[in-house]
C-alpha cells in the first residue's frame, strides 16, 4: 500500500475511534512531531467530516424523493395549472386537499 494510502487508513481509523489506546497515543505523538503528517491528517479529517455531511444529505434526499413520489397533491397541481390569484382561493384549495387527505378534522 502506498504511503498516502497508509496515512489515510491510519487517519480513518483515528477519526473513527478504531485505534487501541497505545496506538492512538503513538499516532498523536507522530502527528505532533511531523508537520507534513499533521497537514495530511488535518486535511483528511476535514474531508472525512465533509463526506459525512455529503452522505447524510444525499441519503436523506434519496429518502425524501421516495416519500415525495407517494404524495398525491391534486390540489397543488390544480393550483399550479389554474394559476390562482387570490389568497382565499389558495386557502380553499389547501383546505380541500387537507380534508381529502383526512389531515384536517
Amino acid at each position: 500500500m502506498s504511503t498516502e494510502n497508509s496515512i489515510i487508513e491510519l487517519a480513518e481509523r483515528y477519526v473513527n475511534g478504531q485505534m487501541l489506546p497505545d496506538e492512538q497515543r503513538e499516532f498523536e505523538l507522530k502527528v505532533q512531531n511531523n508537520a507534513y503528517l499533521a497537514k495530511i491528517v488535518n486535511e483528511f479529517v476535514l474531508l472525512h467530516e465533509t463526506m459525512a455531511t455529503y452522505a447524510t444529505r444525499y441519503s436523506l434526499k434519496n429518502e425524501m424523493n421516495q416519500w415525495h413520489n407517494n404524495i398525491e397533491l391534486p390540489e397543488a397541481k390544480l393550483i399550479e395549472t389554474e394559476k390562482v390569484t387570490t389568497k382565499a382561493e389558495v386557502e380553499t384549495k389547501s383546505k380541500n386537499y387537507l380534508f381529502s387527505m383526512n389531515l384536517l378534522k
Partner: peptide, 15 residues
C-alpha cells in the same frame, strides 16, 4: 411528518 407538511409549503411557494 414530511407528507403532512408538504402541502403547506407547496401552497406557500406556488402562491
Amino acid at each position: 411528518f414530511y407528507k403532512m407538511n408538504y402541502p403547506m409549503v407547496s401552497h406557500f411557494v406556488i402562491y
